[in-house]
Design a protein around this nucleic acid. Sequence first.
RNA 1: GGGCGUGUAGCUCAGCCGGUAGAGCAGCGGCCUUUUAAGCCGUUGGUCGCAGGUUCGAUUCCUGCCACGCUCACCA
Length: 505
Amino acid sequence: MLERSELIQNRYNKVDALRQKGINPYINRFDPTHSSQSILDNADALITSEQKVVIAGRVLTIRSFGKAAFFHVMDGSGKIQAFIKSGMLPDEDFALFKEILDSGDIVGIEGIVFRTKTGEITVLAQRLFLLTKSVRPLPEKWHGLRDTDKRYRQRYVDLIVNEDVHKTFETRSRIISSCRRYLDERGYMEVETPMMQPIYGGALARPFVTHHNTLDMDLFLRIAPELYLKRLLVGGFEKVYEINRNFRNEGISIRHNPEFTMLELYTAYWDYKNTAELLEEMIRTIAQDVLGDTKFIYQGDEIDLAPANGWKRLTMLEAIKAETGHDLHWDEPANAIRLKIGHLIEAPEGKVKDLSAADLIIELFEQKVEPALIQPTFIMEFPKSKSPLAKTKPDDPLVAERFELFMGKLEIANAYSELNDPAEQLLRFQEQARRRAAGDSEAMCIDEDYVRALEHGMPPASGLGVGMDRVAMLFTDSYSVRDVILFPTLRPETGQPSSDEAEDE
RNA sequence: GGGCGUGUAGCUCAGCCGGUAGAGCAGCGGCCUUUUAAGCCGUUGGUCGCAGGUUCGAUUCCUGCCACGCUCACCA
């Protein structure tokens, strides 16, 4: 039940009053001739020509004195000041303003453009139309809406009153379209693969489960589209991509939302090094497109997307050596590695003891190197044991041809040369299945149809996954992923403690 | 899931050595025909997150719960 405070009730009373006078407070259509921005852009011409303009938008702050008032009107392009003065418009329009209009209402204004004595471009109202009555008061005009919970739950209010939030989501949208444009221009085809999958795969993560009633079967929300996209390479498409949501049933944090947007793209006949080149150029192009620059500030650090010698490329072991001084190798026994670096790794009681050599090295990398990666850096070569869908490096059987891209201390992308040997893929799946059986809930399931597809022959190829939310965080200088997701996942809004304790296990 | 913090009017926030609450903005009533958080005068509005406990008395102290933030764990 929605609350009806006195403030809201007063406004509902105005709605009733309008209806009694035969005025519809929620009209069906209105035809503005100008956006606020187009008036500001062409102000001089509009002022001298005294051309009639019609604008529409939401009334923000009203500064009223008796027989005249100023207020700002916000539309999709920005905002512009309006001036209303008794005698300059029909009496009933002025009465509408005095008696009915509240800040938050959506109005149409017909008038001419002029400059106030303080120089602000302003529309002088010759007609005022109420288009939509708002019955709920806006947050305070000076401090706005600060409560983060309310900002996320009632994003519509956040977007009305916080201009920078509006801008952030415009930027996000432009990042996505710029990305599509970049790929479309290079012959990539956008496809849509299943979000509901009978067997989930393509990443190491726990899924959400849903149920189809008629088929009476469980389906998993995808954790990645990877295995479907590679089936399309088998089918003969050579350049495919998908930008869409993935769902991972894991913790929520400042960098993680349960549903998040990934770009995945696959290119036949390429290896991971080709993909790195494409990614570097693509991100730089998007930045130029969206920000107008290849340098930007993220959380106080200037990030340069166009350094003289291109983005840094280091193997994980090189990066560890540069940052910690330790010279490690994938073929060293876990005990030897533990002796060297065990003291550098923070892990809960005794857990370090159980880590494999690859685990220890990755752990060290994540804890000590990742937080230092501010400028765009490709970390090349990952342990094969952690990359069950990637091709092995020909001259190093323990290493997968894989890279991850880091920037602003964030992991942005992951890519590899795709494993296309069906027999080896089956072996890797079987190893994953053993880990699953041993209790690793994030290990992969065996996807027999995927192996069957590989048996038909998948061309050599390289694939890439880019966390688009993370890119949006970078380009909008957002600290939290929730600030670049319009409606982040939240607990349901309730005033009462949850009553279904019976469902807790 | 653990730790720390926050929750008071529509919004932004004070306050509370325990005696049932204040400001600014918004609203309402006045004055006001170039304002920019307009101004001036007056005024309405609160189960102080929820539920218990201690107490003569709880918004304040204690416990539990709920929500949010930070952080650790997990992870991407």
